[in-house]
Deep mutational scan, measured.
Amino acid sequence: VLHDLRQRFPEIPEGVVSQCMLQNNNNLEACCRALSQES
């Protein structure tokens, strides 16, 4: 999931992506929604 998200959101730091995964229990859809608001 992390690799997938890193490719979709290259401009977001890995730490932020990891934190997002923890908050969303590694749910790819939820992470994508959260990160798209972030970027």
Rank of each mutant, 00 (worst) to 15 (best):
G15D: 15
L2F: 15
V17M: 06
N27C: 01
F9L: 00
L35S: 02
P13A: 05
F9C: 03
Q23W: 02
L35T: 04
V16R: 13
E14S: 06
V16E: 11
Q19Y: 07
R6W: 02
L2A: 09
E38K: 13
Q19T: 11
Q19E: 14
V17Q: 02
P13W: 02
M21D: 03
L35M: 01
R8I: 06
V16W: 03
E11S: 09
Q7A: 13
E11P: 02
N25W: 01
A30C: 03
V16K: 10
V1G: 09
R6K: 14
V1A: 06
P13V: 02
Q37Y: 07
Q23S: 09
F9R: 02
P13Q: 04
S36M: 11
D4C: 11
I12V: 12
D4N: 11
A34L: 06
E38Q: 14
R6V: 09
C20P: 05
Q7H: 06
P13T: 02
Q7D: 11
G15Y: 14
C32D: 05
N26Q: 06
R6L: 13
L2N: 11
L35K: 02
C32Q: 07
C32K: 08
C31L: 00
Q37L: 13
V16L: 08
N24M: 03
C32P: 03
V1S: 11
L22E: 14
V1D: 13
L35R: 02
Q23A: 14
L5W: 01
R6C: 14
R33G: 06
Q37E: 14
A34C: 07
R6G: 05
L5V: 01
L22D: 11
P13G: 03
R33Y: 06
F9Q: 02
Q23T: 08
I12D: 00
E14R: 03
L28M: 08
C32W: 00
A30I: 01
C32G: 04
E11D: 14
S36P: 10
S39L: 12
N24L: 03
N25P: 04
N26R: 02
Q37N: 14
S18Y: 09
S39E: 11
A30E: 11
N24R: 00
R6H: 12
R8L: 09
L2M: 09
L5D: 09
V17R: 01
N26S: 08
S39K: 13
V16H: 07
Q7T: 11
N27S: 05
I12P: 02
S18V: 15
R33K: 12
V17T: 00
L28C: 04
L28S: 04
Q23K: 09
D4E: 15
D4V: 14
L35Q: 04
M21F: 05
Q37T: 11
L5R: 03
R8W: 00
N27M: 00
R8P: 00
C20Q: 09
H3I: 11
V1T: 11
V16G: 03
V17L: 13
Q7C: 03
S18T: 14
Q7V: 10
C31M: 03
V17K: 00
L28R: 06
Q23M: 11
N27H: 04
D4T: 13
Q37R: 12
M21Y: 09
P13C: 02
I12C: 06
E38D: 12
L22Y: 09
R8T: 01
Q7W: 00
R8D: 03
I12G: 00
M21A: 07
R33P: 03
E38T: 10
E38C: 13
N25Q: 07
N24C: 07
S36G: 09
E14Q: 08
M21V: 07
E11M: 08
E38W: 15
S36K: 12
G15E: 15
L35F: 03
F9V: 01
P13H: 03
S18N: 15
V16Q: 10
G15N: 13
C20S: 11
E14N: 02
H3G: 11
N26T: 04
L22V: 12
E11A: 05
Q19C: 10
P13I: 06
A30L: 07
N25R: 06
P10T: 01
H3S: 13
G15W: 13
G15Q: 14
E11W: 10
F9D: 04
E38G: 11
E11Q: 10
L5C: 15
F9M: 06
N24T: 01
F9T: 02
L28D: 01
P13Y: 00
V17G: 02
R8M: 13
N25S: 07
A34R: 05
A30M: 09
M21Q: 00
A30K: 08
M21G: 02
C20T: 13
H3M: 12
S36C: 07
L2Q: 08
R33M: 08
A34Q: 13
L35E: 05
N27T: 00
S36Q: 13
E14M: 06
I12H: 09
D4S: 10
V1F: 08
L5A: 01
Q7K: 12
R6S: 07
R8G: 00
F9I: 02
H3Y: 06
V1Q: 15
M21T: 00
P10A: 00
P10Q: 00
M21P: 03
N27K: 03
L5S: 01
L22R: 14
N25K: 12
Q7N: 08
Q19L: 11
H3T: 12
I12A: 05
C32S: 08
V16C: 04
G15C: 13
R8Q: 03
S18W: 12
Q23L: 10
V17P: 04
V17S: 02
R6T: 06
Q19I: 15
P10L: 00
C31I: 03
Q19W: 10
A34Y: 07
I12Q: 06
R6M: 14
N27A: 04
S39R: 14
H3Q: 15
L2E: 04
R8C: 00
N25D: 12
A30H: 08
E11K: 05
S39W: 10
S36H: 07
A30W: 02
Q19V: 08
N26H: 07
S39Y: 12
V17F: 03
N24D: 01
V17N: 06
L35D: 02
Q23E: 15
L5Q: 04
I12L: 11
E29V: 01
A34E: 11
H3R: 14
A30G: 04
C32Y: 08
V1L: 15
Q19A: 15
E14V: 08
C32V: 15
R6Q: 09
Q37A: 13
V16N: 05
L5H: 06
E14K: 01
E11G: 10
L5M: 05
N24S: 01
Q23N: 11
P10W: 00
Q23G: 03
C31A: 05
H3F: 07
L28V: 08
N25A: 06
C20F: 11
L2S: 08
D4M: 12
S39C: 11
Q19S: 12
N26P: 00
L28Q: 05
A34G: 03
C32M: 11
P13S: 06
N24H: 15
N25V: 01
A34S: 07
E11F: 05
L5I: 15
Q37S: 12
E14D: 07
V16D: 08
L22P: 01
L2R: 06
L22Q: 13
D4F: 14
N26A: 05
E14C: 04
Q7L: 10
Q7M: 13
S36W: 04
N25G: 10
N26L: 03
C31V: 05
V16Y: 14
